[in-house]
Amino acid sequence: MDIAGKVAIVTGGGAGIGEAIARRIALGGGKVVVADLNEAGANRVAESIGASALAVAGDVSDESVLRAMIERAESEFGPVDIFFANAGIGGGLGLESTDEQWDLALEVNVLAHVRAARLLVPKWLERGTGYFVSTASAAGLLTQLGSVPYAVTKHAAVGFAEWLSVTYGNRGIGVSCLCPMGVNTALLNAGFETGDSAGALASKAVRTAGAVLEPAEVADLVIEAIGVGHFLILPHPQVLDMYRYKGADYDRWIAGMRRFQDALLGRVSHPSRPAPGVVGAAPQAPRPGSPE
């Protein structure tokens, strides 16, 4: 889908990847609703973009907020063409993550996507066109050391995006799923830095995995991908190699991830018993996913 002349909503648009996508849409001739829980951030971004942007503050996991946001976009700019489900949180860390932390991660990282699609897809089916972009993470294809709610909910986000594409892809609705590793955002820089060992592990794993990209670099790749209708957007191309390695031999991949985790924690890694049909030690682990 060409963004020129299109109306887009970007959640989590007050900073990071969301801000960069909002700016890129406006630069490409589109109109954008910058949505964020942080009202000041949303206002800052929209005001700096100008007349082709407006800000909406609120919790995008709340269906009433999403409905009001869509109605505002329609009244100000016209029917919504593209929805960027970009807002995300880290959630808790290990098994000590509380039910409240799990609930919040599920609400923001997964159910916000479901609720937005529930409101928009029927409209898009009537029009015969529409595009949904889910910001997941390489953690949704691989996993995230340290942060279990993040890893689990990002897997779910990828699964929902896949389902949307399979179900509606032949009916005029495009779907893309963004799965970066490290990006220079607040979530990477502070989201896992809680003083807890699991938080330190999550942050170190991300920074060790590969280059940390700037949000603007990611935004350019996102706009390029939706222009040609690519489903999987991988700003870090090595993620695809890691994912193939995981699928080719799951037991070796898990053994390698254990060793990678031990290395990050400074622990001695004990050889795992080879799985049936697996000969010898696993090669070095592919790196885990990372937050947006």
Score class of each variant (00 low, 15 high):
111 L>H: 12
50 G>L: 13
241 D>M: 05
5 G>D: 00
63 E>H: 11
58 G>E: 03
121 V>S: 04
89 I>H: 05
196 D>V: 07
211 A>L: 11
223 I>W: 06
1 M>Q: 13
116 A>K: 07
141 L>E: 14
211 A>G: 04
270 H>R: 04
125 L>C: 09
262 D>Q: 05
284 Q>F: 03
35 A>M: 13
136 A>S: 15
281 A>I: 03
249 D>A: 03
117 A>E: 15
22 A>K: 12
273 R>C: 07
53 A>K: 07
48 S>V: 13
237 P>N: 08
72 R>P: 00
177 C>Q: 01
252 R>F: 04
88 G>W: 12
42 A>S: 03
76 E>H: 15
159 G>R: 00
73 A>V: 04
81 D>Y: 07
273 R>D: 13
121 V>Q: 06
110 V>G: 10
69 M>H: 01
58 G>Q: 11
129 T>N: 14
74 E>V: 13
196 D>M: 11
227 G>T: 08
270 H>A: 15
120 L>E: 04
64 S>G: 11
76 E>S: 09
121 V>T: 13
201 L>Y: 01
53 A>W: 00
65 V>F: 15
221 L>H: 10
205 A>R: 03
188 L>E: 06
24 R>T: 09
72 R>Y: 05
249 D>V: 03
221 L>N: 11
75 S>C: 05
114 V>G: 10
271 P>S: 06
230 H>G: 02
253 W>D: 03
278 V>H: 01
63 E>M: 15
251 D>Y: 09
194 T>M: 09
72 R>H: 14
22 A>L: 07
182 G>M: 02
189 N>M: 01
24 R>P: 02
103 D>W: 02
249 D>R: 02
158 V>F: 04
40 A>Y: 00
214 E>S: 08
106 L>A: 11
127 R>Q: 06
225 A>S: 14
200 A>F: 00
151 A>T: 11
248 A>E: 00
59 D>V: 10
119 L>G: 02
92 G>L: 02
106 L>F: 13
276 P>K: 07
282 A>V: 01
201 L>T: 04
37 L>K: 12
205 A>I: 03
69 M>K: 11
85 A>T: 02
161 A>F: 08
22 A>E: 10
68 A>H: 09
162 E>S: 13
180 P>V: 01
109 N>S: 05
252 R>H: 01
32 V>N: 01
229 G>M: 04
21 I>M: 08
5 G>F: 00
183 V>L: 05
244 R>P: 11
158 V>D: 10
276 P>I: 01
44 R>L: 07
103 D>L: 14
209 A>G: 10
169 G>I: 02
40 A>L: 09
113 H>E: 13
19 E>Y: 01
184 N>L: 06
159 G>V: 10
41 G>V: 06
66 L>S: 08
245 Y>Q: 15
202 A>G: 05
222 V>E: 06
11 T>E: 00
288 P>V: 00
108 V>G: 05
177 C>D: 07
80 V>A: 03
113 H>T: 07
